[in-house]
């Protein structure tokens, strides 16, 4: 299992702010593929991926127990 977090416009697309999904192994790119199949239009948005609160590349491995967040372009301040 991995924990997923969605924010801002991504949260509005998925209509949830978090969920837990089954996951044995795979990269960030594979998770993005899953997300785009589950939520049509997902890859039309811009975002970065954070695994366990660190920004990562799409080649990064995701392991069971990880926390993965999709981070749209930030606009704090």
């Amino acid at each position: 299992m991995i924990q997923l977090y969605y924010f801002a416009q991504i949260k509005e697309l998925t209509q949830k702010k978090e969920e837990t999904i089954l996951w044995s192994e795979g990269t960030v790119a594979e998770l993005i593929k899953w997300a785009d199949e589950t939520y049509p239009g997902f890859t039309d948005y811009s975002w970065q991926v954070a695994v366990n609160e660190e920004y990562v590349l799409e080649t990064e491995e995701i392991n069971p127990g990880d926390i993965v967040a999709f981070i749209p372009p930030v606009s704090g301040g």
Partner: peptide
């Protein structure tokens, strides 16, 4: 990772929103 949504009289938008 902080996001701001602007709410106007006739709509709303996440700032920094970029749809491809």
């Amino acid at each position: 990772p902080i996001w701001k949504k602007e709410i106007w009289e006739d709509g709303e938008k996440w700032v920094g929103e970029q749809s491809n």
